[in-house]
Design a protein around this nucleic acid. Sequence first.
DNA 1: CCTTGTGTTCTCCG
DNA 2: CCGGAGAACACAAG
Length: 282
Amino acid sequence: MPELPEVETIRRDLLGRIVGKKIKKIEIKDQKLIRSRASVFVKSLVDKKFVEIERIGKLLIFSISNNLYLLIHLKMTGQLIYLNKKEIIAGGHSLSESPNWPNKYTRIILEFSDGARLLFNDLRRFGYWQLVNLEELEKIKKNYGPEPANLLFSHWQEILKNKKTNIKAFLLNQKHISGLGNIYVDESLFLAGIRPTRLVSSLNLVEQKKLYLSMKKVIDKAIKYRGTTFRNYMDSEGKKGNFSSFLKVYGRSGEKCRVCQTRIVKIKLAGRGTHYCPLCQS
DNA sequence: CCTTGTGTTCTCCG
DNA sequence: CCGGAGAACACAAG
């Protein structure tokens, strides 16, 4: 499940690899995943270059040399795989556990003029590629709250104000704060010592501050370790994220809390599997 | 039937 | 009756 740290890892890796390269060819194997007419899509990209790669929350934004923007969302199982000419001939990367590409889940292939390729794999076909102009991009950006890294505590307090839902549902909502998904919401709440079921309105000042700091800490560390691989996630070289071994609650139901040895509980909340320690979190 | 990110639709409340 | 918030559902496939 790519969340902010995973998408940021991909963004940083791709910056040095594809920016400035001319797009030579596009192969669309599954029309469903592109949110434009295929002919328009191909015409707008071929012979153009990527100028910059940005990100808002979990959404990647590739600026193109013709003032259009390619939005790529990985949703649950999307992967962006970069292969240079040599790796294409070898059928993948030089890692033993690395699968061969393209595979049956490869939905779109971008080919650059130097022979390198960018593959978009998506098992569940939830992800998408979409072309927008600046005006449309600005509109889309308005749906996202600030990211943990850019957040001031005074702003955080404003955001929390008058919210009537539980803290889990609140943190998952990208309009309030962007980039957190199920894994990092559960991990941030554990670090803050707050139960996911708590109402936003019930958090006192100390808890607000703890959560504020915990989100930043969890996200920063996860970026440092190149994200979490729980199921499908891999970076643009086909490698797994290294944050998985630091998970305190996510995916650990029935296992002992690393702090107090109490067994981690799993409930369903906001329609999502939700993990917490009944002793550390109150 | 479980998994999840997000867009849409439904429902409730003041 | 309107607007906003939040809940519920839809999507997909293994």
